[in-house]
Nucleic acid binder design. Structure first.
Lengths: 351, 351
DNA sequence: GTGAAAGCGCTAACAG
DNA sequence: CTGTTAGCGCTTTCAC
């Protein structure tokens, strides 16, 4: 079934059918209804490719999940508790606005070709990227293609200087610095002085910021940043587990531990449990992200909530709006984190 | 940049460029290289829509996640621990085969229109559906469109009779009946005689089968199916929580509980914990699906593993292969479940 | 208001 | 082996 047939059946020309489909104003109500009736009768759906080829939008946005670590694990991405809700949210928000989502994952540098192709082959109107690290060159080469692109968790400062070059870019972050500061200050208020951290990957914006905020918060209160209490976690469960284990075996523990994400906090708690170290009696723990699981475990993990849904929504809306616009402009959004108090923090014991 | 320009620059015609792009044999190595050089130099990518319009495949498969319950929750789908790994696996497998995945969720009956449109608008070569229930009519109307379609967790018997009508359908299930039987028998071996169940939604194939297998297994051993120990969970955490709570308040408990999925088992364990009922000392629990979280909690949940990755892989491969084929034929696949022994089951105490 | 005709970028007969 | 030509199904000037 094609528009020509509809035209014939309705006794009009293809142009008129097209006008009806696209809701153009210059067609009288009567004609419109006549055409619509035929369209509905035959469940006619215009061929997307033909429309796109003739200059219309694809009504599809690309979602690219970058996951360059953990390559061997089959369940890699959604195993990561952070990406899954994000993908969900993007699909959800896009669908509400009448858009499809074309999704592709990037495990290796070569896979970036696929995201470029999604743009250059005109499969999508705009794209959203999450999980990017400092793959500067490639990332820039994608942005330079000029299509509306949103990046989640990316250093805005770095490119803010060359605003005119990145008019098609949307950067979305959460208040990680403030969130971390709040978490550390909360621990300090509880009387903790030896506060450790499980670091994320530092070539990640959030990893970097969360660590910087941790250091700053301690220094501001005149507390020591003790190397022994800094665990390299790289945002990975396994690394966090091993790092924590090493610290435990070393025998000297902080009284509180801030983890750069929830997954790693969970790993640490596992180690503590295995070694008879009680949370929060012996050590307080705070995570980051506030993924769903952590409120269901015992003890429920105190965490800094990242408003994933809002970030996804903003990203979707921004790129879609940009695509509709004539004029692009660099946009930055920052959404608020929130400290979710639960059961893994307690007052520091007096020595 | 279009093929015509490449042709001009390479000193050939568009047809030859096309032949090179599509790897047709009838072009000498020399010409091929000459053209390729220009293509690479200009990073030329053929316009997908034009190719599709001219008869090529989209190299995109649709993934439709049906989730008609739990509409109010923003994090609905990936909150469900079962869908997330599945989506991941489908994207992963499709990507490996060079395909993009177009994803759309169905929360309401109206949303089914979008899945039909994805097909009729020629956005995808084939589709995969998960989370379907007995929306018979709509489902059939989709399959009747004639595009390669895979459905996960669907009653194969129901349509096996009319094989010729569903030549384009692929049905993929796991051995839920056997898996459940194995789980129940395991409990029986441990000495349990009062075995309860948290039911899934019965308009779901897996919900139905798991319940049937439970009843059969008990009856086969001459054990009672006690109404008091049957909890309506509908595959939902909340319903399972409330149902379990009601049973606990009623005061009479089975010594073992089989849950039709892990999420509900988790809810039940929460209730038990809140009421001072110990797992597995006071009650044994078995879940279904073997989602990642359950091995990380304490006590780690014994569960029947559903090989999600394999199922997704099979679905992707089957529909892609079908699309490439001339002749379609109804296909059914059943992949093996596996009982994962962990810490939530213990010998029944002698009364 | 509406139709005719050109064109979007590519593929695929058909000749040669 | 390769170029010419005719579509694929739709949108969009441009006349009428």
């Amino acid at each position: 079934m094609k528009s020509e047939k509809i035209a014939k059946l309705a006794g009009v020309s293809r142009s008129t059918v097209s006008r009806v489909i696209n809701n153009y104003p210059n067609v009288p109500q009567e004609t419109r209804e006549k055409v619509m009736k035929v369209i509905e009768k035959y469940h006619y759906e215009p061929n997307t490719c033909a429309r796109v080829l003739a200059g219309k939008a694809t009504n599809t946005i690309g979602l690219f999940v970058i996951s360059m670590t953990d390559q061997e694990n089959p369940n890699r991405i959604y195993q990561n508790n952070y990406f899954a809700p994000f993908v969900d949210a993007v699909v959800d928000c896009a669908n509400v606005l009448g858009y499809y989502v074309l999704i592709h994952t990037v495990y290796r540098t070569e896979d970036y070709l696929k995201v470029k192709q999604a743009f250059s082959q005109k499969r999508i109107d705009a794209g959203i990227m999450i999980g990017t690290e400092k793959d500067q060159e490639i990332l820039h080469s994608i942005v330079e293609m000029g299509y509306p692109t949103a990046i989640i968790d990316y250093d805005a400062e770095e490119i803010t200087a060359q605003e005119e070059k990145y008019g098609n870019l949307v950067i979305i972050n959460s208040t990680d610095y403030e969130g971390t500061t709040q978490a550390i200050n909360y621990l300090i208020q509880l009387g903790h002085r030896d506060i450790g951290i499980i670091k994320g990957r530092l070539n990640t914006y959030s990893g970097k910021v969360r660590f910087a905020a941790y250091v700053d918060a301690l220094e501001k209160k005149g507390l020591p940043v003790n190397e022994d209490f800094i665990i390299e976690g790289a945002f990975l469960k396994k690394a966090a587990y091993e790092g924590t284990e090493k610290m435990v075996h070393r025998g000297k523990l902080p009284t509180a531990l801030f983890s750069s994400n929830d997954d790693m906090a969970l790993s640490a708690m596992e180690v503590f449990k295995d070694n008879g170290i009680r949370v929060p009696e012996d050590i307080s723990v705070i995570g980051f992200d506030d993924v769903p699981v952590i409120s269901q475990i015992t003890p429920a993990l105190t965490s800094v909530k990242v408003p994933v849904y809002e970030m996804a929504k903003k990203a979707v809306e921004a790129v879609i709006e940009m695509h509709a616009q004539e004029q692009y402009r660099l946009q930055k959004y920052v959404v608020r984190t929130e400290l979710m108090l639960r059961e893994t923090c307690a007052k520091a014991k007096m020595m």
